[in-house]
Amino acid sequence: MENAINIIKYSGEVEVFNIEKLKRSLRHSKASEQLVVEIAEEVQKQLTDGMTTKRIYEIAYEILKQKSKSGSARYKLKKAIMEFGPTGYPFERYIGKILEYEGFKTDVGVVMQGHCVTHEVDVTALKANEHYLVECKFHSDQGRNCNVKIPLYIQSRFKDLETHWLKQKDHSKKFHKGWVYTNTRFSTDAIQFGECAGLGLVSWDYPQQNNLKSKIDRSRLYPITALPSLSKQDKQKILNNGIVLCREVCDNPKLLNTLGIPTTKKKKILEEANELCNH
């Protein structure tokens, strides 16, 4: 291909740069088409052979941040969730919040008795006669995915718990199902096993119509770590206080008062959060 520029993906694979893929990712930020074209052209000017997709993302993000705070927050959505680390607990709380939005009553970090042993379940979700057990697999590295061992293990835990539940009168008529949520991706055989075993799977881009990204966009439950004005230290401080959503700050701005964040910065945080939640 004439004038083709090779770039290096997160996985280490090499592929030819495709400007249309960059434009598609920018459109997900809800930036105007004019801005999408402008950013894509600027990135293309700075491209060099062997540049990483990470660096391309950084260039696009910095330009977008100057033009649209809410757009840049949406553009960095995947990276923002990875900033929930190093523990998986904020991600568990985050998935609990998404399921609450979908009408479930949820609990996070529940120890439950199974038929054979006790289990700590990341999220339990109950709505009418639907009772879900959710395991959350959080990765802070985009190159790490969930292989088939994860759904195999989760399904065995779910079956142990289900066997115990079915002995109880109040559970005998409930619909039980195990789920796995991850912020990265499932391998092909993980999806094949999950579908065959009746285990629910939700990853960044699976299933096609109801994946994690589409759930977030639909609910506007954006992670607090997406806000451009927050430093790494600010994010950790906020997460340590159990706050995972921009919406939590929008609904209760006083949450920021106990975190030792300067008044001028609090104002900026609130402006960005409100723009993102109410766009």
Results as ranks from 00 to 15, higher is better:
residue 90 P to Y: 02
residue 168 Q to F: 03
residue 194 G to Q: 05
residue 218 R to A: 15
residue 160 D to C: 12
residue 178 G to R: 06
residue 245 L to C: 01
residue 165 W to P: 06
residue 59 I to R: 01
residue 251 D to G: 12
residue 231 S to N: 04
residue 10 Y to R: 14
residue 157 R to C: 02
residue 211 N to D: 12
residue 82 M to F: 07
residue 264 T to C: 02
residue 261 I to K: 01
residue 276 L to S: 05
residue 32 S to E: 13
residue 56 I to N: 03
residue 164 H to K: 11
residue 178 G to K: 09
residue 80 A to D: 04
residue 28 H to A: 11
residue 159 K to N: 14
residue 41 E to C: 10
residue 240 N to F: 04
residue 274 N to P: 02
residue 97 K to C: 08
residue 144 R to Y: 07
residue 191 I to Q: 06
residue 24 R to A: 15
residue 10 Y to C: 01
residue 267 K to V: 05
residue 215 K to I: 07
residue 232 K to E: 13
residue 226 A to I: 04
residue 224 I to G: 00
residue 254 K to N: 11
residue 67 K to P: 01
residue 59 I to Q: 01
residue 37 V to M: 05
residue 271 E to A: 11
residue 127 K to T: 11
residue 237 K to I: 14
residue 163 T to A: 15
residue 204 W to S: 05
residue 212 L to C: 06
residue 207 P to Q: 05
residue 129 N to L: 12
residue 102 E to S: 05
residue 136 C to S: 07
residue 22 L to M: 04
residue 259 L to A: 03
residue 112 M to R: 13
residue 71 G to K: 08
residue 40 A to Q: 06
residue 262 P to F: 09
residue 138 F to C: 07
residue 129 N to S: 07
residue 249 V to T: 09
residue 220 R to P: 00
residue 53 T to F: 03
residue 123 V to I: 14
residue 137 K to N: 12
residue 163 T to W: 11
residue 124 T to W: 08
residue 17 F to G: 13
residue 116 C to K: 15
residue 28 H to T: 15
residue 137 K to T: 09
residue 168 Q to K: 08
residue 223 P to I: 06
residue 121 V to P: 11
residue 152 L to F: 12
residue 245 L to D: 07
residue 127 K to V: 14
residue 171 H to N: 09
residue 54 K to F: 08
residue 95 I to F: 03
residue 235 K to N: 12
residue 92 E to Q: 15
residue 128 A to C: 04
residue 62 E to T: 12
residue 269 I to M: 08
residue 225 T to C: 13
residue 57 Y to N: 09
residue 145 N to T: 06
residue 84 F to M: 11
residue 44 Q to V: 03
residue 130 E to G: 08
residue 171 H to A: 04
residue 101 Y to Q: 07
residue 250 C to N: 05
residue 73 A to T: 10
residue 194 G to E: 02
residue 205 D to K: 01
residue 247 R to V: 09
residue 180 V to Q: 00
residue 1 M to Y: 15
residue 190 A to W: 01
residue 120 E to T: 11
residue 204 W to L: 07
residue 179 W to I: 15
residue 177 K to Q: 15
residue 130 E to A: 15
residue 126 L to I: 14
residue 47 L to W: 07
residue 199 L to F: 07
residue 9 K to Y: 04
residue 230 L to C: 00
residue 261 I to V: 07
residue 67 K to R: 14
residue 60 A to P: 02
residue 213 K to R: 13
residue 163 T to S: 11
residue 198 G to N: 11
residue 87 T to D: 15
residue 150 I to S: 09
residue 73 A to Y: 06
residue 91 F to A: 10
residue 171 H to T: 00
residue 39 I to W: 01
residue 97 K to D: 04
residue 250 C to P: 05
residue 237 K to A: 10
residue 23 K to I: 04
residue 151 P to A: 07
residue 216 I to D: 12
residue 157 R to L: 01
residue 210 N to S: 11
residue 228 P to M: 10
residue 219 S to T: 13
residue 123 V to S: 08
residue 184 T to H: 01
residue 206 Y to F: 13
residue 275 E to W: 03
residue 89 Y to T: 13
residue 261 I to E: 05
residue 26 L to P: 00
residue 211 N to I: 00
residue 206 Y to C: 03
residue 261 I to N: 01
residue 274 N to H: 09
residue 270 L to D: 03
residue 20 E to S: 14
residue 220 R to K: 08
residue 49 D to H: 15
residue 80 A to R: 02
residue 119 H to L: 10
